[in-house]
Simulated assay, not measured.
Amino acid sequence: MSGIEFFEKGQGQPIVLIHGFCEIAEMWNDFANSLSEDFRIICPNLPGIGNSNLEQSILTMEEIAVLLENWMEEEGILNPIVIGHSLGGYVTLALTDLMGQKLKAIGLFNSTAFSDSQEKKEMRDRTVIFLQKYGVETFVTSFVPPLFPETRREELNSDIKQAIEQGKNCSLEGLIALTKAMRDRKDRFEVLANFKGPKLMIAGELDTAVPIEASRKHQKAVTNYVELPATGHVGMIERKEETIEIIRSFAKSLT
């Protein structure tokens, strides 16, 4: 058994929504409630998040992809559309590398196909040190708010508080392992470009984690590129209704 915890809702074409770093499957609740009117929505927790097993302290994106492929086989999730937010996008690309045309379509949500720069790798190392020193709660409380544009943090205060509370469901070992997996992941731009199925990318104009200049370099590699104005790294919260409809329209165009 894969040991992957998940929830699902609805019937029809399966859409797998993969959460990002310091996030849990439940972040997709509103997406699942709305999109399940038309599709089977399945939202897993990555290893070390919620009650998903973390059986080793060192993980790679490739190993996470194998776990998710096995989980999808167990649950009869065939020919899925897979969409991932941030870290979830890295996992989506690793799945694409592994499964190829067994996936119907893929989507990157505030994510990138590029590997980490040396500067970003060093930031990941500092994240590991911070986590080891201060723990999950302190880290999540400091990590989440800057993902949102400063001009909207007061307006989105309750959403930010909820995101922080959800992030506390991540284990220390899980966050450390996933941080290292992100740091060490390989560049998969060619994987994205060579995938033959439909490819969605949703980018945030004000995203500080995935700068818009980097997102724009993906435009020719995807079939559907959407840029959200005045939006940071958490588009599914900042532009919830709009991004739900973007995903619905993308998925409906395939069925």
Results as ranks from 00 to 15, higher is better:
residue 1 M to T: 12
residue 6 F to Y: 15
residue 9 K to T: 05
residue 11 Q to R: 12
residue 13 Q to V: 09
residue 14 P to N: 09
residue 16 V to F: 14
residue 19 H to M: 04
residue 19 H to P: 00
residue 19 H to T: 02
residue 23 E to L: 09
residue 24 I to A: 08
residue 31 F to A: 12
residue 32 A to P: 06
residue 33 N to E: 13
residue 34 S to C: 03
residue 37 E to C: 10
residue 42 I to F: 10
residue 46 L to T: 02
residue 47 P to Q: 04
residue 47 P to D: 03
residue 49 I to R: 07
residue 53 N to D: 09
residue 53 N to I: 11
residue 56 Q to C: 06
residue 56 Q to A: 08
residue 56 Q to P: 02
residue 59 L to I: 01
residue 61 M to I: 02
residue 62 E to G: 13
residue 62 E to Y: 00
residue 62 E to M: 02
residue 64 I to W: 03
residue 66 V to R: 09
residue 68 L to D: 05
residue 68 L to A: 08
residue 69 E to S: 15
residue 72 M to I: 07
residue 72 M to K: 10
residue 77 I to L: 01
residue 78 L to S: 14
residue 80 P to C: 07
residue 80 P to F: 02
residue 81 I to M: 08
residue 85 H to C: 01
residue 85 H to Y: 08
residue 87 L to F: 11
residue 88 G to P: 04
residue 93 L to C: 10
residue 95 L to P: 13
residue 95 L to G: 12
residue 96 T to I: 04
residue 97 D to M: 05
residue 99 M to W: 07
residue 105 A to I: 14
residue 105 A to Q: 06
residue 106 I to S: 05
residue 106 I to G: 03
residue 107 G to H: 15
residue 109 F to C: 03
residue 114 F to G: 08
residue 115 S to E: 15
residue 117 S to W: 12
residue 121 K to I: 06
residue 122 E to R: 12
residue 126 R to K: 11
residue 127 T to I: 01
residue 130 F to G: 10
residue 130 F to N: 13
residue 136 V to N: 00
residue 137 E to G: 00
residue 137 E to C: 07
residue 138 T to F: 07
residue 141 T to V: 03
residue 146 P to S: 01
residue 148 F to M: 04
residue 149 P to C: 03
residue 150 E to I: 00
residue 152 R to T: 10
residue 153 R to N: 11
residue 154 E to P: 06
residue 155 E to V: 00
residue 157 N to T: 06
residue 158 S to G: 03
residue 158 S to A: 07
residue 158 S to I: 08
residue 159 D to H: 12
residue 160 I to M: 09
residue 161 K to I: 07
residue 162 Q to H: 10
residue 164 I to H: 07
residue 164 I to A: 00
residue 165 E to V: 05
residue 172 L to E: 00
residue 174 G to W: 08
residue 176 I to R: 11
residue 177 A to Q: 04
residue 180 K to L: 13
residue 181 A to L: 03
residue 185 R to F: 00
residue 185 R to N: 06
residue 186 K to V: 15
residue 187 D to E: 11
residue 187 D to N: 13
residue 189 F to W: 08
residue 190 E to W: 08
residue 193 A to R: 12
residue 196 K to T: 14
residue 201 M to T: 04
residue 207 D to V: 13
residue 211 P to E: 00
residue 212 I to H: 02
residue 216 R to N: 10
residue 220 K to Q: 13
residue 220 K to R: 05
residue 222 V to N: 04
residue 225 Y to M: 05
residue 226 V to Y: 07
residue 230 A to D: 15
residue 234 V to R: 14
residue 234 V to K: 15
residue 235 G to P: 04
residue 236 M to I: 12
residue 237 I to L: 12
residue 238 E to V: 03
residue 239 R to M: 13
residue 239 R to V: 10
residue 239 R to G: 14
residue 243 T to I: 05
residue 246 I to D: 02
residue 246 I to Y: 01
residue 249 S to Q: 14
residue 250 F to N: 01
residue 253 S to N: 13
